[in-house]
Design a protein around this nucleic acid. Structure first.
Length: 271
DNA sequence: AAGTTCCCCTGTTAGC
DNA sequence: TGCTAACAGGGGAACT
């Protein structure tokens, strides 16, 4: 499931492949992936140039010469940059035709992904991007006190708060377990019991883990064999998620559901 | 108002 | 062996 490091990896690969190309046509085979009116979406995108790829949290942002195409990969969204005779399988739901006669195919087995068009003026002041909290890999000017204010009144587990993208952006179910493990904090701890020092610990670990995961091109679990070649390596560095014993004290890891998500943690090492 | 549950989806796996 | 049911999960809507 793409989290911040995986989306950043995709952004870097697509930057190499797509910048400078025009989108000449779009074939939308599963319209539910498009937010808003399909024809408006097409009209806004077709015949635009891809100038740049940005990212905020898990949102991928195609900056066009006029407007922006937003893509959220959710669980299984993937982009394939391929020749125009590429075999279109049943999981490819959107096909962008490009000015160099190649294709950008969007494949999404579970169809959870979403596309959006925003004008450049509205990009960061309207949904979905205006809802996104601090992205630690982009913004160095955040106020830790402002973040703390958002969590200190919450009576939900700290893991659930960290998955809330409107506070800190980018964590998904894999990396949140890793961050809390490194910070020695039990994921069940209610957010209003977290101290400012512990929040600093969490933020520092988020930065370290995001940076390392991006260096390793993200995590590839569940045999994602993408022909795009974006196969990450960070799964080899995971310490608790999908693991059975604590790498530090060797005791058996606890597995519980928090916010409906499978959670791995060490009762001894995480307090 | 904050917190919880449901729903969208389909490939994989567990269970009978 | 073959079928069905449960499971996985990001995020938003609906509900409590």
């Amino acid at each position: 499931m793409p989290e911040l490091p995986e989306v950043e990896t995709v952004r870097r690969v697509l930057t190499e492949e797509l910048v400078g190309l025009d989108i000449t046509d779009i074939d939308i085979r599963y319209p539910n992936l498009i937010e808003g009116d399909i024809n408006e979406f097409k009209n806004n995108i077709i015949n635009k140039k891809i100038c740049k790829l940005d990212r905020l949290g898990k949102h991928l942002i195609f900056i066009l010469n006029d407007g922006a195409l937003l893509s959220h990969l959710r669980m299984e969204g993937k982009f394939f940059y391929v020749d125009n005779d590429f075999p279109i399988n049943k999981h490819i739901h959107v096909i962008f035709k490009l000015s160099n006669n190649k294709l950008l195919c969007y494949q999404d087995v579970r169809k959870f992904g979403r596309f959006n068009y925003r004008s450049l003026n509205d990009l960061y002041t309207t949904p979905p991007l205006n809802e996104v909290g601090v992205d630690l890999t982009i913004n160095n000017n955040y106020s830790i006190n402002d973040i703390y204010k958002k969590i200190i009144n919450k009576k939900i587990p700290i893991k659930a708060t960290l998955l809330d993208q409107s506070i800190l952006a980018g964590l998904g179910n894999i990396y949140v377990d890793e961050v809390l493990y490194e910070a020695h904090i039990n994921p069940n701890r209610l957010s209003n019991t977290i101290t400012l020092e512990e929040l600093e610990l969490i933020i520092n670990q988020m930065k370290i883990i995001f940076d390392n995961a991006i260096l390793n091109k993200g995590t590839t679990i569940k045999s994602y064999t993408s022909s795009l070649g974006v196969i990450g390596n960070y799964q080899n560095f995971l310490k608790v998620h999908t693991k059975s014993s604590c790498p530090c004290c060797k005791s058996t890891l606890t597995r519980v559901k928090i916010k409906g998500r499978m959670t791995y943690y060490c009762e001894k090492c995480q307090r």
